[in-house]
């Protein structure tokens, strides 16, 4: 079992004919994901990979294929429009991989989505994967994952792969791994994913990976303390980052003391999380937490 994506996932890829879109469309399909449609305005009527129909609009793609998850690979100036188009077509889950979306665009998008049935993950995220049901909606290397009962949620891309790799090598499988993205404004928060993991009967423990900047980890800590009944192991990276500097992720600027790694670690510890002392200890800490 898993959250958000599973064997019923019918994937649509926006920007499927682009360089990134086509590369990852092939890999998602090869992993076992049910890729049912692509959308590239102006290229409707073509097929991708010999069998996947390409449509001019998301609305047409949904009407013809019943697609229920959209994965976006369009360039930053057009990413907000792509998200809005999928939301307008009623797609329940939209995952935006695009890095470099202006914050103002994301602000308007999440405001538009308020009260609507569409959930947005990202932008600037690696996507999500449920290994047990062979659903890979994103750019992560599929082969490092293994089916299991630990849910992973993270703001990062490659650091999530690092975490998964350590878990798999420690013999710990994953239910679903979700990268919520590193931007200051994003569609899905730690709290949203924690709530889903908490309610998922097949997820028995959670790994949360945060970083410096903002107070998203404190919100997660407050939610964990109040609601989460499953063990949580947490890692915060950026302990050595100098204040006020942008460390690649637009959200990872330290502003104020709450944004410091130490403040986040303290908040998560106070909420009962098992602190992962260094990024090299993810597998060992989770293993110990599970009593292995």
């Amino acid at each position: 079992m898993s959250i958000l994506v599973d064997g019923n996932t019918r994937l649509l890829i926006q920007g499927i004919t682009g360089r990134e879109g086509s590369f990852h469309a092939e890999r998602c399909a090869a992993y076992g994901t049910n890729l049912v449609a692509g959308v590239t305005p102006g290229k409707g009527g073509e097929t991708f990979g010999g069998s996947v129909p390409v449509f001019n609009s998301v609305r047409a793609a949904v009407r013809e294929t019943d697609a229920n998850v959209a994965l976006i690979f369009v360039p930053p100036p057009f990413a907000a429009d792509a998200i809005l188009e999928s939301a307008d077509a009623g797609v329940p889950l939209v995952v935006c991989i695009t890095e470099g979306v202006p914050v103002r665009d994301s602000t308007f998008v999440v405001r538009y989505l308020e009260g609507k049935a569409t959930r947005l993950i990202g932008p600037n995220c690696p996507g999500l994967i449920s290994p047990g049901s062979k659903a890979k909606i994103g750019i992560m290397p599929g082969n490092i994952h293994t089916p299991g009962k630990v849910g992973v949620v993270s703001r990062s891309g490659t650091l999530t792969y690092e975490a998964v790799d350590q878990l798999t090598k420690a013999g710990i499988g994953q239910s679903t791994c979700v990268g919520i993205g590193g931007d200051p404004v994003s569609g899905t928060s730690f709290v949203d994913v924690l709530a889903l993991f908490n309610d998922d009967p097949e997820t028995e423990a959670i790994v949360l990976i945060g970083e410096i900047g903002g107070t998203k980890e404190q919100q997660a800590a407050a939610y964990i303390k109040e609601h989460v009944r499953k063990p949580v192991a947490s890692l915060i990276v950026g302990q050595t980052a100098p204040p006020g500097r942008r460390m690649g992720h637009a959200g990872a600027v330290i502003t104020g003391e709450a944004a410091l790694a130490s403040a986040k670690v303290a908040a998560l510890e106070a909420a009962g999380c098992h602190t992962i002392p260094t990024p090299a200890d993810i597998g060992a800490t989770v293993s110990a937490m599970l009593g292995g």
């Binding site: 792969y161 690649g248 260094t278």
Partner: peptide
């Protein structure tokens, strides 16, 4: 490659007693 892993790498270098000269993603 990747901002999160870059920060994690800096952290682990520091915890081993060395000092990063840069963040580079």
């Amino acid at each position: 490659n990747g901002a999160g892993l870059a920060m994690a790498t800096m952290d682990i270098v520091k915890s081993a007693g060395a000092d990063p000269a840069n963040f580079l993603d």
